[in-house]
Design a protein around this nucleic acid. Structure first.
Length: 195
DNA sequence: TAGTTGATCGTCT
DNA sequence: GACGATCAACTAA
């Protein structure tokens, strides 16, 4: 499979909600040794920093969320529930503290490797149909926090054009505050979308 | 199949 | 000291 072209920095520096919507259909590429893992992004959520009570960045910058405040185009990986990792794409200019959480992917290349990384629970859509699941399938953990998405190890590439009508929008999942915000975007009808 | 709960620990209060 | 941008196993029906 031929790899599509890598997204430019300017893609990430735009308003977070636009980036979130436009990430649907793009391809997350992870280089492992000489192999590539590729997945189509089918579900994301936007987190808008200081104006969003559900965001890690709501109460300002800390040691944990430092990467969120970097310039757009970095990967923010955090550890939660004592056992899971979740991956975010940092957006907008440095200091804003905004990001887009990757919630689900559709595997395109390297599926066997992803299943192996997931273990016995990685069957069917369970390989990558959740934020912590896709991190495990793509071997994204603490060491990947802060990765520049314009580098060679992890980046996002252009995918097929998705018509606006195919993109669904809803409230975010798994949060207590900010549930009224319709900041979750997903590819309608795709089997890997969670729920 | 819906609803509940245990796992497990870094981070912030 | 409490709890979380989750997941999987378990229970009930």
């Amino acid at each position: 499979m031929k790899l599509p072209r890598k997204l430019h920095r300017s893609f990430y520096l735009r308003p977070t909600l636009s980036v979130a919507k436009d990430l649907i259909g793009k391809q997350l590429v992870r280089k492992r040794g000489r192999r590539f893992l590729v997945g189509r992004i089918v579900e994301v959520e936007a987190y808008l920093g200081e104006m969003d009570p559900a965001s890690h960045a709501y109460r300002g910058q800390t040691k944990r969320n430092e990467v969120m405040f970097r310039n757009g185009g970095h990967l923010y990986v955090y550890f939660t529930y004592g056992m899971h990792f979740c991956a975010n794409v940092v957006t907008e200019k440095e200091g804003k503290g905004r990001a887009v959480l990757l919630r689900a992917l559709e595997p395109l290349q390297g599926i066997a490797v992803m299943r192996r990384l997931r273990g016995k629970n990685g069957e069917g859509v369970n390989v990558t149909n959740g934020p912590a699941k896709l991190c495990e399938a793509f071997a994204i953990a603490r060491e990947e926090n802060g990765t520049d998405l314009l580098g060679e190890t992890i980046f996002i590439a252009d995918g097929e054009k998705i018509p606006p009508r195919r993109i669904g929008r809803s409230a975010r999942i798994g949060i207590r505050n900010g549930t009224e915000k319709q900041w979750r975007f997903y590819l309608r009808g795709n089997a890997f979308v969670s729920r």
